[in-house]
Design a protein around this nucleic acid. Structure first.
Lengths: 226, 226
DNA sequence: ATACTAGTGACACCCGGTGCCAAACGGAAG
DNA sequence: CTTCCGTTTGGCACCGGGTGTCACTAGTAT
């Protein structure tokens, strides 16, 4: 440690109240953490965008963050995890959305709605979100790794679909639908990254519309909507 | 080299005809290769199924194959590539299929057909194919890596769809449809791996049917077919 | 002061992957 | 048989991501 250029983010900001016990959440005990997930992630993403993911080593990151290499791997299990935010809690939200969904709305509509909500971010976070997604969708090692994360996302979808259809979440239909939904999302994200002015949620909505149209066998030979 | 327990597969098998020039394809020149892709792949897959992918090191594989570690990486760019066959030539076949498809058949039907053909394997290869796919879909590092391969597969689909719809292959609809098709396939494969008696091609066909049904907004609240 | 504890970071090590280069091999030409 | 030439091999050193271990640091509580 002992590096400069670092802001321990929380502790060092308020020399206002001396070592007086704050009534806040549970007095810390033991040595103070050297950094935070958010700080590390931010530093790393900045470096990734500057020099590229592969040309940025973990040693570069820990040097920039002023922490030890071993410590880094206690905050993130792998370099690939750096661009990911708190995915788990987003999944929990989506599960909640499904749990409270009107059982009379058509399945496809509930899915469309839930997935759109899953991808709704406050406007001020959009630039950051775009940066993260640009990395995740363009850097091969991250693209590969993200598949493992998406598996959890798919499971949430599949479980809901299975419940609706009275099947098991491992059955063909729930699995297939979950895969297809993932595909729709990623297609929309790719468009979003290419077109700076596009609205992500509208793109997702469009993607669902496209799927609806294509998977409905029409008389139109080209498979295009009337 | 100088190891024992190895079968150089081709050369050493026919001491029938001495150093006589065979009219076959182009007399080799230079040192003879130590092994083949097929042999390496076979040895490795066997080890993977026995001891697990992660617990099998590249050193284990090269020891079993009786080649040098450096040589291994000239045959396969990475350990992850071992379970993959000649994917490129399969893609070429699919491209050809699309090229000769009846322009009056509905898009979705052409896709369904092409994808089914893509996954048609001779009966005697099915056990091997199942082994490979079991690895690819169950081992995390392979699952992750395969995403990069699937990207090529998706491109073939997207290019065909784009041509049919008079769009660019980077546009939303082609990308989305390609993603969805991939999802359908993987869903079917997962089922196939779980149910030993299942017919892969029928499962893929079913998957397309499911998608068709779900993505058609019905009056049925549960989103199930009538 | 002392004890306790969460967190840190140095070290050695494993594994996948790469650049480099000398040596092995095998056919063809002298 | 020897020499030349082209291909392939495989040893070596090195890099980067990731882990197990362990002593140490820096806080709180007594």
């Amino acid at each position: 440690m002992g590096d400069s250029t670092r802001q321990p983010s929380q502790r060092s900001e308020a020399p206002v109240s001396p070592p007086v016990q704050r009534n806040g959440p549970a007095q810390r005990i033991g040595r103070a953490p050297a950094t935070t997930h958010g700080e590390l992630s931010h530093i790393a993403i900045t470096l990734f965008l500057e020099r590229g993911f592969d040309r940025t080593t973990v040693d570069d990151i820990v040097a920039a963050a002023g922490i030890g290499r071993r410590t880094f791997f206690r905050y993130f299990p792998s370099k690939n995890d750096l661009p990911w935010g708190d995915f788990e809690s987003l999944l929990a939200q989506m599960r909640a959305h499904f749990a409270t969904a009107d059982p009379h709305r058509p399945l496809i509509e509930v899915l469309r709605q839930a997935i759109i909500e899953f991808n709704r971010f406050p406007e001020e976070e959009l630039p950051h979100h775009r940066n993260r997604m640009r990395l995740l969708l363009n850097v091969p090692s991250l693209t590969a790794y993200s598949t493992l994360r998406y598996a959890d996302w798919r499971r949430v979808i599949a479980e809901f679909v299975a419940e609706r259809r009275g099947e098991l979440s491992e059955d063909l239909a729930p699995q297939t639908i979950a895969w297809a939904c993932l595909g729709l999302c990623l297609g929309a994200y790719e468009q979003w990254l290419v077109h700076d002015d596009a609205d992500l949620l509208a793109l997702i909505d469009d993607a669902f519309g496209t799927a609806e149209a294509v998977f409905t066998v029409a008389d139109d030979p080209a498979g295009v909507r009337p």
